[in-house]
């Protein structure tokens, strides 16, 4: 058991020796950041535009529905006036 522990301790030591914390090359990290921030701007603008289109679309649809409702109301009222209900009896 102790022998196995010693071997595992040696393996841990080797791992610590060779699996060292490497760093990304600074030029790569910098350039990727620039590309990502630019892509983020594009993505956010796209999302913003899409939201605006949806908002305007919803506003137009709402307005059209209101106009249609009002028109229907006026037509129905006119019809009702043209043909008043006849009293039975």
């Amino acid at each position: 058991m102790e022998e196995q522990d010693a071997t595992l301790a040696q393996i841990i030591e080797r791992l610590q020796r060779w699996l060292v914390p490497v760093e990304p090359p600074p030029a790569f990290a910098r350039s990727l950041k620039g590309e990502l921030v630019e892509a983020a701007w594009r993505q956010y603008q796209r999302t913003h535009r899409l939201r605006r289109i949806l908002l305007v679309g919803a506003a137009i649809a709402g307005s059209l529905a209101s106009v249609a409702g009002l028109t229907a109301f006026l037509i129905l009222r006119r019809r009702a006036r043209a043909h008043p209900p006849v009293a039975v009896g």
Binding site: V22, E23, P24, A29, L32, K33, L36, V37, A40, Y44
Partner: peptide, 19 residues
């Protein structure tokens, strides 16, 4: 919603992910 903040987030984790 803020690209610059995404850049900061990237800076915080890029080394870990690269490793």
């Amino acid at each position: 919603r803020d690209p610059e903040a995404f850049g900061l987030l990237y800076e915080r984790y890029v080394a870990q992910i690269y490793r």
